[in-house]
Computed example of a mutant assay.
Amino acid sequence: MHRENLNQLYGNLHDKTSIEILKGNYFIDELIDSPNDQRFGLTLLIRPSEKIKIEIENFLNKSKEIEPEEYYYPKSDMHITVLSIISCHSDFNISKISVNQYSDIISKSFNEVENFEIEFKGITLSNSGVLIKGFPTNDSLNNLRDNLRSNFKKEDLENSIDSRYSISTAHITTIRFRKKLKNPKNFLIFLEQYKNYNFGTLKVENIELVSNDWYLREKNVKKLNQFII
């Protein structure tokens, strides 16, 4: 997706969600603190640099002063989803799949994918939280995703690619709503300061294949492979 289209998508999402938040129409995730959440899956992801994580953490620390009860991603869990290969579900078991087979398909999908960077500039909203807007510098991420979709379609391996939605952005989820916002108006006014804030640019050098829980918590993430670009 070209930058102008991506920016428009992020902008529309922000404007639409802001209105809904003021009406009290947003998703409160009641499973975040549940010890019985057994949803696991398989994800291809990119990790932001330490410098970008620190910028995001500074933003989150200020957010906490206004809405302390929401779920804030720690630096260890921050990520950009390239593709959810197997969406998290309670029956997933890593021992029942061949990691090597998945790795082979993923490796093949990097053919003719050029190096790229992601510029993280500004925030947007979804009905479940706050996202950092990511803008890839070329079409490589889209091309990689398309290659993955095409290559997995040819194979008889469990996957649920695009089953929830077809991913086209390069965002980082940073806040999830786990309680009703105490002062949504003040929170939105605060977020406005970061609408175009420059969190930094990442040169993507490697992509990880991991097994993970729904929130990519460090304690539940197992790194299975790494692909160098």
Rank of each mutant, 00 (worst) to 15 (best):
S63R: 10
S63K: 13
E67V: 12
E70I: 00
Y72M: 06
Y72G: 12
Y73S: 05
P74F: 07
S76T: 15
S76N: 15
D77R: 06
M78H: 04
H79Y: 04
L83I: 13
S84N: 15
S84T: 13
I85R: 04
S87F: 09
C88V: 14
F92K: 03
N93S: 11
S95E: 15
S95L: 15
N100A: 11
S103R: 11
S103C: 10
I106Y: 07
S107D: 01
S107T: 11
S109R: 10
S109Q: 06
N111F: 08
N111W: 10
N111E: 13
E114F: 00
E114P: 05
I118N: 07
E119N: 14
G122Y: 04
I123W: 06
T124P: 04
T124D: 04
N127P: 13
S128M: 05
G129Q: 00
L131R: 05
L131N: 12
I132P: 09
I132E: 05
K133S: 14
G134T: 07
F135I: 08
P136E: 06
D139S: 14
S140I: 03
L144Y: 01
L144T: 01
D146I: 07
L148I: 15
R149G: 10
F152C: 01
K154H: 07
E155N: 10
D156Q: 09
E158A: 02
N159T: 04
S160Y: 02
D162N: 08
S166R: 08
T169V: 13
H171V: 08
T174I: 15
T174C: 10
I175W: 06
R176H: 15
K179L: 11
K179W: 06
K180P: 14
L181T: 10
P184W: 09
P184R: 12
P184Q: 00
P184G: 00
N186W: 06
N186L: 10
L188P: 09
F190D: 04
F190V: 12
F190L: 14
Q193T: 11
K195Y: 14
Y197A: 01
Y197C: 00
Y197S: 04
T201W: 03
L202F: 12
V204I: 15
V204W: 08
N206P: 07
I207A: 07
